[in-house]
């Protein structure tokens, strides 16, 4: 693994195909910009999620979950992606796998809260790893 400490959080193959697009393995300009864009995208998405959580807007939460799932999947950030998928499902009044309906909005919200918190944590974890990878300890 090129990225130290990333074993469960990052899908190597997926992330590497991004890295392979870097022209310079030292600079890693491209992948770095993508990853950092993702950081800010995730931050803002989590921020929005908090807002919709407050408003109890399941639909929006689901959409946001899907949205973040897309980019985290592209980068191979598996844990974040999985959590986002759950957020998407809960927002659709389903269970976490999306196979069964969960008509109770409150329950869904409850789970959403937990899952979003979890997703954030996972995001911060992977963010740390990635920043380290890009030699950006700050």
């Amino acid at each position: 693994m090129k990225i130290p400490g990333a074993k469960d959080t990052i899908d190597e193959a997926t992330f590497e195909q991004i890295l392979e697009m870097d022209d310079d393995e030292e600079e890693r300009e491209f992948s770095k910009s993508i990853v950092y864009d993702f950081f800010s995208q995730a931050e803002s998405t989590f921020g929005k999620m908090d807002g919709y959580l407050e408003k109890k807007d399941l639909g929006q939460l689901s959409a946001l979950g899907h949205f973040l799932k897309g980019s985290s999947a592209t980068l191979g950030l598996t844990k974040v992606k999985d959590s986002c998928e759950k957020i998407q499902h809960f927002g659709q009044n389903k269970d976490e796998t999306g196979t069964h309906d969960e008509p109770d909005d409150e329950k869904c919200l409850e789970k959403l809260k937990d899952t979003i918190a979890q997703a954030k944590q996972e995001f911060y974890d992977v963010e740390k790893i990635l920043k380290k990878f890009y030699h950006d300890e700050a």
Binding site: I18, F38, Q41, G70, S71
Partner: peptide
């Protein structure tokens, strides 16, 4: 693609 990250990649 609606996600800018994916789009860029």
């Amino acid at each position: 693609e609606d996600n800018i990250i994916n789009l860029r990649v």
